[in-house]
Simulated scan of single mutants.
Amino acid sequence: MLLEHAVEADFPAIIELVNAAYRGHGDVESWNIESGIIEGTRLTDSLLREDLAAKPHAHFLVHRDLWSGAIIGTVWLEPVDEDVWYLGLFTIDPALQKQHLGRGLLSAAEDFAKQRGARTIRMGVLNVRDALIAWYERRGYQRTGKTEPYPYGDNRFGTPLRDDLAFVILEKHF
């Protein structure tokens, strides 16, 4: 699966895709939306630009449909240590999610990071997203036993609808 670095011209399509995949906006809802957990916009133009400016060593990658060129997947990869990389903003177009594209995108993202020295991929998944955690576990990710607090009071990524949120930290070692 071909991954390309996102460019500024991609931002509107990326923002639309991320919001559809995380929050269920659009014609087809994702199987793993955050409905009932967090509401509101997941990504805006200003948030995307802020993250890219604050983390110039990160790689925000897109996967395009081979025929139309439309962005159908995204992944954020960021080196956090000499051999540990963080994976985030992982999305597949909700209309295409039952075609196993997520598996391919995840594998391509892991290969991208491994080629740049990663020996571990780390991510945080909301503790209440059992189906999503199980999906990652089936792909070799393991719970580390660590959690990180949810950033209550920072509604830049949406408004939490629950008061019991935290991020479960998962890792995969190569």
Rank of each mutant, 00 (worst) to 15 (best):
W135R: 11
L61D: 06
L61Y: 03
H59S: 14
H5F: 08
L106C: 09
E4V: 00
V18Y: 06
F90M: 10
V128S: 07
G102T: 05
H5M: 02
A131R: 15
E148W: 05
L2M: 13
L61R: 04
I15A: 01
E34K: 05
F112E: 02
I169H: 09
D93A: 15
G124T: 06
N19I: 05
L61T: 01
I71S: 01
T74V: 04
W85N: 10
E50I: 00
A166D: 12
E148L: 13
R139T: 00
D164Q: 10
A70P: 01
R156Q: 11
D81V: 01
I72Y: 09
H63L: 09
G102S: 08
G145R: 05
L48H: 03
T41I: 12
R42I: 09
L3N: 00
A109D: 11
T74P: 02
A131L: 12
M123I: 10
R23S: 08
G140K: 03
L96C: 01
D10K: 05
H25G: 09
N155G: 02
N32A: 14
R23H: 07
K55Y: 14
L89C: 10
A134V: 10
A13S: 12
E8P: 00
V7D: 07
L3G: 07
R138S: 14
A9T: 14
G88W: 04
T147Q: 13
E39L: 05
A9Q: 14
R119K: 15
D51I: 07
P151S: 04
M123Q: 09
E4D: 11
P149D: 09
L66R: 14
A95C: 09
F167M: 08
M123Y: 08
Y22N: 07
G36I: 06
L96N: 11
D93Q: 12
L77D: 08
R49A: 06
L96I: 07
V18W: 06
G88N: 05
L17T: 08
S35I: 00
E82F: 12
F11W: 15
P79D: 02
R119Q: 15
L89E: 11
P79A: 01
D81M: 12
W76I: 03
L126G: 02
A53M: 11
W76C: 07
H173V: 13
L165T: 08
H25Y: 14
H63D: 04
G40L: 07
P149M: 02
E34R: 12
L106R: 04
L2Q: 15
G69W: 02
A20Q: 11
G69Q: 07
V125D: 08
H25A: 11
S46K: 04
D27A: 15
Q142D: 04
R138M: 12
F90G: 04
E8W: 01
S35T: 14
R139N: 14
W31V: 12
E16R: 15
I169Q: 11
S68W: 00
G158P: 03
F157T: 14
E78W: 02
G69K: 03
T120H: 10
K98P: 00
I38T: 04
A95Y: 03
P94I: 06
M1V: 14
L132T: 13
V62D: 06
L3P: 08
F157V: 12
G158S: 06
E8Q: 11
G104R: 14
R103A: 14
E29D: 08
I71T: 11
I133Q: 13
P149T: 08
A118L: 03
A20W: 00
